[in-house]
């Protein structure tokens, strides 16, 4: 199954860009997702909410794209995606330094997707909400 993305701009106290992912995020499409986010940042988006309600699968490659998306939204160049764990180190350092990020938030994770984030510790890096409505109310 291919992956589709749809983008919506919502006023939630602050302007929020909501990107909904639908399908499966794997090694065949994870770089494209990062490419989809770049123009959003370039056109001024500073709060990104990824709605994962219709995302049924995420692989380790998909985790690297979540991290790379965060870097893009922080105005930095994402690392070489080939590095896996090491690609996540600088981000975890930020978390340990108390610089908890909130420019990229997640909502609507299905249990299978949530398991993958939890098993790799990535869940601690992104504010996450059960659904879009709750996520938008938190801004």
């Amino acid at each position: 199954m291919a992956m589709q993305t749809t983008v919506e701009r919502v006023e939630a106290g602050v302007p929020v860009t909501v990107m909904a992912l639908s399908g499966e995020l794997d090694a065949s499409n994870y770089l494209r997702l990062v490419d989809d986010v770049r123009p959003l940042y370039d056109s001024g988006a500073r709060n990104l909410l990824l709605d994962l309600t219709d995302l049924s699968f995420i692989s380790s490659s998909g985790l690297v794209s979540l991290y790379s998306i965060l870097k893009v939204m922080q105005g930095e160049e994402p690392p070489d995606p080939e590095y896996g764990w090491s690609a996540l180190h600088s981000m975890e350092r930020d978390v340990e330094d108390g610089k908890k990020q909130d420019v990229v938030r997640l909502c609507g994770m299905q249990p299978a997707v949530g398991d993958v984030l939890q098993r790799t510790g990535i869940d601690a890096m992104f504010p996450s909400y059960p659904d879009r409505e709750t996520a938008l109310a938190a801004y």
Partner: peptide
């Protein structure tokens, strides 16, 4: 152990 001290690679194998 702290993530920055971990050996790189192997996230897929870990899963």
């Amino acid at each position: 152990i702290a993530p920055q001290h971990r050996r790189p690679g192997g996230m897929g194998i870990h899963l």
